[in-house]
Structures are given as structure tokens and as C-alpha cells.
């Protein structure tokens, strides 16, 4: 399977739009185009194989379901996962004769996507570093009172950072990466330890994605039970994700009602407290 020049160029363009300090904006860029599931659709359309794109994008999505970048630190970069990892996985899965719907095909995609994503961190720091130059120009302009220049600094010049750190790397790696698949086939037999490990890693990695998210939402041990409840709904009761969301929504509503009730109860009590103490220390969890 080949990746044409125009296809590699389009991956490069989408990488510019979808990355974290990206040019598609946060909502439509990073959090939409950057999500592997959406990228699966985009890459699938570009390569003329939407179904494979979605299968593999969905598999990779699970690993990065909670890609939070607190305070601008990243452990993996979406432009690389989505627009380098997914095209290469499509090529790899087809090249090795795996079915994209099979656990093995998806494990292949997950391993490739995650490996590329980790490397992509360099692209993130690269972009942010080149942007320093434009910011420096921005401070000069502000000092001189050349205020309109700020627009160019904020929304125009960063394109240069992205051409350097998103477009060019994506273009080259997707164009050249195709050969890698043949190399792997030639040197790494499927029943060898290296390939077996690679596929096993692919099946284990989604657990990291889920755990990252769990760490974020589960603040007390009892929250793990909520997670286990959702897990049981799907694993033992066979509910699909939409059905599980409905059940989850129902419990969320009950929880909300209980919270409201306890607030109403607390209000008169707090008023009494205020009478004796002068103030009540409201518990604000932040």
C-alpha cells in the first residue's frame, strides 16, 4: 500500500489544525480533529477506506480517552497519534493481512499509535518553542503601540511553527513510514517473541488510558465502585455503551436529587450555625 504525496500533505495539514496549541482552535482543532476516533474518519476518507480508519481510530481512542494536558504538559501528542499513527496503522494492518475488526489488527494500531504519540511529544515542545519567537515580536509591537500586529502574532505567525513542527514531520514520516511495514515483515516473524510482545502490548495499553481517567475522577476509594458498576453493566450484563450511559444517567439524576435534598437540609442548619459562630465554613472542593 502506498501513501501518495497529496495524501501525506493532507495529513500534514490536519496535524497543524489538530495539535494542542493548534490552528484549528481548541474546540474544533484539538478536541475534535485531534481525537483519534474523528481522525480515523478523516484519515479513512483521505485514504479511501473509512471503515478501517474508524476501526483503528476507535481502538486507539480508548488509550487516549482522557488526554488531559494539565498546565500545558503532555505525555503524548494528538497530532502524531492521529495523523501519523493512524495512517501508518492502516498501512501496517493491510500490509500484514490482518483484519481491522480483529483484536490483533487493533492491537497493532494501538502499539503503533502510542509509540508514535510518545515521540510526538517532541513536536509539541518544538511548536511551543518556536512560538516564543513570535511572542517576542508581540511584546515589541505592544511596546510600540502597534496593536493590530497582535492578531498576526497570535493567529498568523504560528503557522510557521506548525509548518516546521507539524506539517513537515507528518509529511515525511507518513510518506517514508510505509517502507517500515515491509521491513517488519522481513525481519520480524509473527510467531517471534518481538511481534508477540508487540501485539500483547497493544492489547494492554488501553488499560493505561482508562486508568489515567480513573485517577482523575476517582478521588476516594468508593468512586472505584462506581467504575466497577459501569464495568459490570457491560461485562456481565451485556449492556452496550449507549445503554450503559442511560443507566448511568439515571443514577446521576438520583445523585443530583440527593445532593439537592441535603443542601436544603443544610441550609437551615447553616443559618443556625451562623447565628452562633458568626460564619460557616462552606466546604468548597476545588
Amino acid at each position: 500500500m502506498e501513501i501518495q504525496v497529496w495524501q501525506a500533505a493532507l495529513f500534514g495539514l490536519f496535524a497543524c489544525l489538530a495539535s494542542m496549541p493548534g490552528l484549528g482552535g481548541t474546540v474544533f482543532g484539538n478536541y475534535t480533529l485531534g481525537r483519534p476516533l474523528v481522525a480515523g474518519l478523516v484519515v479513512g476518507l483521505i485514504m479511501g477506506d473509512v471503515q478501517t480508519g474508524i476501526y483503528l481510530g476507535a481502538a486507539i481512542q480508548v488509550v487516549y480517552i482522557a488526554l488531559v494536558t494539565p498546565g500545558g504538559t503532555v505525555s503524548a501528542d494528538v497530532r502524531a497519534i492521529s495523523y501519523i499513527g493512524i495512517p501508518l496503522s492502516i498501512v501496517a494492518v493491510h500490509g500484514m493481512g490482518l483484519s481491522p475488526a480483529s483484536p490483533e489488527g487493533q492491537a497493532m494500531a494501538v502499539t503503533l499509535g502510542s509509540a508514535v504519540g510518545t515521540l510526538g511529544t517532541v513536536l509539541f515542545y518544538g511548536t511551543a518553542t518556536v512560538n516564543l519567537v513570535w511572542q517576542h515580536m508581540g511584546w515589541k509591537a505592544l511596546e510600540k503601540g502597534n496593536l493590530k500586529k497582535l492578531y498576526v502574532v497570535d493567529m498568523g505567525l504560528p503557522w510557521i511553527s506548525h509548518i516546521l513542527c507539524s506539517f513537515i514531520p507528518t509529511f515525511i514520516i507518513t510518506k517514508v513510514g510505509v517502507n517500515m511495514v515491509d521491513l517488519m515483515k522481513a525481519y520480524l516473524p509473527m510467531d517471534g517473541i518481538a511481534m508477540k510482545t508487540l501485539f500483547t502490548v497493544g492489547s494492554l495499553l488501553p488499560a493505561v488510558g482508562i486508568a489515567i481517567l480513573l485517577k482523575q475522577v476517582a478521588t476516594k476509594p468508593v468512586d472505584l465502585l462506581t467504575f466497577l458498576f459501569g464495568f459490570t453493566l457491560a461485562a456481565c450484563m451485556g449492556l452496550n455503551l449507549i445503554a450503559a450511559s442511560v443507566v448511568g444517567g439515571f443514577f446521576a439524576v438520583i445523585n443530583y436529587r440527593i445532593k439537592l435534598l441535603s443542601m436544603q437540609k443544610a441550609a437551615p442548619a447553616a443559618a443556625l450555625d451562623a447565628g452562633t459562630d458568626g460564619f460557616d465554613d462552606d466546604e468548597e472542593e476545588i
Binding site: 480508548v62 482508562i210 476517582a218 459501569g230 464495568f231 459490570t232
Partner: peptide, 29 residues
């Protein structure tokens, strides 16, 4: 605010349940 906290906590509960289901559906070991 207090009400916003109640909503947030409930939404996070929904999220945790869905994530549990995602884990069971999509991780295949």
C-alpha cells in the same frame, strides 16, 4: 456554587460509570 457542585458531582458519576463500560467493552485481554 453549591448547585453547580451537585451537578458536577453527578455528571462525574455518570462519566465514571460510562468509563467502566468503555473499559469492559474495548479492552480485550
Amino acid at each position: 456554587g453549591e448547585k453547580a457542585n451537585a451537578i458536577r458531582e453527578s455528571v462525574i458519576m455518570l462519566g465514571t460509570i460510562v468509563i467502566g463500560a468503555v473499559a469492559a467493552t474495548w479492552i480485550s485481554i
